[in-house]
Simulated assay, not measured.
Amino acid sequence: MPQPAAPVANYVPWVKSGNQLYVSGQLPLRDGVLAYTGKVGETVSVEDATQAARLCGINLLAQAKAALGSLEKVRRVVKLGAFVSSASDFTRQPVVANGASDLMVAAFGETVGRHARSAVGVNVLPLDAAVEIDAVFEIDPD
């Protein structure tokens, strides 16, 4: 599990509220370096963008582990919000988002890992990232 990234602006990486853990949007960082930049369908392939989404998912899990001490406390992946920096005619955002969705199912199994999701094309993301994903997890009550 990678070291969770520190926020780059005025926000916190996660918030616990009741039995919910909200994790701020994670970029495709690997070893602290942005691994995928540019627009999907223009300078980034669908395959690379899917790997970027998977990396965002890994970083979401790293934040959740930092917040909870253990991923064993996750009861359900409730929702992922995937933002894909897209060329104006790119429409395969759901395929890209599967990189993170498939990871959640692999990590937690069908019952816990399957989730609601949004997959949205956007004009640009922070630091020219190709993908950004946030998450909501149901967790053990404190």
Rank of each mutant, 00 (worst) to 15 (best):
Y22Q: 12
Y22E: 11
Y22I: 10
V23W: 00
S24F: 07
S24A: 15
G25C: 09
Q26L: 06
Q26T: 05
L27V: 15
L27T: 08
L27D: 05
P28M: 10
P28H: 06
D31I: 13
G32T: 08
V33T: 14
A35R: 13
Y36T: 14
Y36Q: 14
T37C: 12
G38S: 08
G38Q: 05
G38R: 05
K39Q: 10
K39W: 06
K39D: 10
K39V: 08
K39N: 14
V40Y: 03
E42C: 15
E42W: 12
V44E: 02
S45V: 11
S45L: 09
S45G: 10
S45T: 15
E47R: 13
D48K: 13
D48T: 13
D48F: 07
A49L: 06
A49E: 03
A49D: 04
T50C: 11
Q51A: 14
Q51Y: 14
A52F: 03
A52D: 03
A52Y: 02
A53R: 02
R54S: 07
R54G: 04
C56K: 02
C56A: 07
C56R: 01
G57H: 01
I58H: 11
I58K: 11
L60R: 00
L60M: 05
L60H: 00
L60W: 00
L61G: 00
A62V: 04
A62W: 00
A62L: 04
A62Y: 00
Q63L: 07
Q63T: 10
A64E: 01
A64Y: 00
K65L: 04
A66V: 05
L68S: 04
G69F: 05
G69V: 08
E72W: 10
E72L: 12
K73W: 09
K73M: 09
V74D: 01
R75E: 12
R75S: 15
V77D: 02
V78W: 10
V78H: 14
V78D: 10
V78R: 15
K79P: 04
L80Q: 00
G81M: 13
G81F: 13
F83Y: 13
V84N: 01
V84D: 00
V84E: 03
S85P: 08
S85W: 05
S86T: 15
S86K: 13
S86Q: 10
D89K: 13
D89G: 09
F90Q: 06
T91M: 12
R92I: 09
R92W: 08
